[in-house]
Design a protein around this nucleic acid. Structure first.
Lengths: 242, 242
DNA sequence: TAGATTGTTAATCGATTAACAATC
DNA sequence: TAGATTGTTAATCGATTAACAATC
């Protein structure tokens, strides 16, 4: 108990390791804040590639996203060594690896539960598919939505959950039922083997340990802009570009 | 340049100050991370109130949300003094003040731009209204959506923007057009006086300084759960209950 | 009063930034 | 090689947690 003990000492990677190996070795040592920024890197790199850019420096990429060059280098380095000293990052390589790191090439089986506005948006726009999930089925409680085919997926009755969970099991579900039905639907999913829930109901859920969950509360982001709107009403100015 | 200089020294509030006064005095000194947690406090307190709970301690509230009691006290104290030593926080008072702090009683004029899946969700569910915005008009480029009345708001043609911006000006817009139309729509809104954009298009925008913006990228949250799903495939376990 | 719980300061922890050596 | 830019360690900064005095 004498040595500084430091924090997590991030195991070193070497250049010929695959992203999988790097991440496996560093699992848990990569800060969540960095993981959460990767979506923006992914989109930026996608657009660069579409625009024919093949190499980009940490400075340029940082400018695009409003991050410091230092942070860009730190972030990318968590996942492996993608840069070439003296030149920058190979856009194509980076893009391919990010896709792999985030499992967008995995075809993980998934379901969409709730086919209202948000559920049909997810289905028709193939939002899950673009992130590498394979949507096996969709459920909705409303009779008039059942039988509809949205984005190639037929909407079934909630009551079919046990049967579907047996015949076409999924570990992942996007939950987009109305808030008042959220907890009950989540419980049902979990009791039928679902291990990860993407919660877009706007209601916070109570889930057993061992279930992976991520909530996307549109409302929270709206509230926080509501707070910042105060400044336009006489608070001191702190408006930002970005 | 000798004194430790410290960080922002958070000006002290006293018990008889209104939330408005406290925030005005501390504007910019309240960390963004705390502001972003307030949506969850708000929802928790709403549900407590609905359930007839009138007093709650920082420990209990923290347990509900997965925060430490210490953090709860810090967070609430940024905005004023709501607690009663020896008892806890008055749920009703806290709720009322949070509503006020986040402007949910302000009736700030707003518009919804894009009336597809997400836009109609916002309109029909009165999402903006619940956060204290007054939706004056809605726009969509698709002829078949024009004339529809969603959540009491008539959807108009994009081309009517100049006229609407003149006759019924708004400073706030929820942007939910398809990603490929996002930048152009944002530019048009800004050139017609919009000063704050809630961006739910999934495309990052480039906006002039002075425009307040908040992006809600559903996709980012999905990607980050995709990353965490790796652990169910053999990474070391770090699954959390929440 | 004694017990409880807040408000607030101090200590810890983690994340961001800066600096620079490695290397293409 | 010289120039540039990464990879990585060290310094800074900010946010979270712990501790405790104030006070109901």
């Amino acid at each position: 108990m004498k040595a500084p003990e430091g924090a997590a000492p991030l195991p070193p990677a070497d250049r010929n390791m695959s992203a999988d190996e790097v991440i496996k070795m560093r699992w848990g040592a990569i800060p969540d804040s960095a993981v959460r920024r990767m979506g923006r890197y992914m989109r930026a790199v996608e657009r660069l590639e579409a625009g024919g850019v093949t190499v980009i420096s940490s400075t340029q990429l940082g400018d695009m996203l409003g991050y410091t060059a230092s942070q860009v280098r730190q972030d990318l380095n968590y996942f492996g060594k993608y840069g070439l000293q003296g030149f920058g990052y190979a856009v194509g390589l980076l893009h391919d690896d990010l896709i792999h790191i985030f499992g967008a090439d995995r075809g993980f089986p998934a379901a969409v539960v709730g086919a209202g506005h948000i559920g049909s948006y997810l289905l028709e726009r193939s939002v899950l598919q673009k992130c590498g999930l394979r949507v096996l089925w969709a459920l909705d409680a409303a009779p008039e939505r059942q039988g509809q085919v949205l984005g190639g997926v037929a909407v079934r009755d909630m009551g079919e959950l046990p049967e579907l969970a047996r015949s076409r099991p999924v570990l992942f579900a996007a939950l987009c039922v109305p808030p008042e039905a959220a907890q009950e639907a989540a419980d049902a999913l979990i009791s039928h083997g679902v291990k990860a829930i993407w919660n877009i109901t706007g209601r916070d859920l109570t889930l057993p340990r061992g279930v992976l969950t991520e909530s996307a509360h549109l409302e929270d982001s709206l509230l926080s802009i509501g707070y910042r709107l105060r400044e336009s009403e006489g608070g001191r100015s702190r408006v930002s570009g970005e």
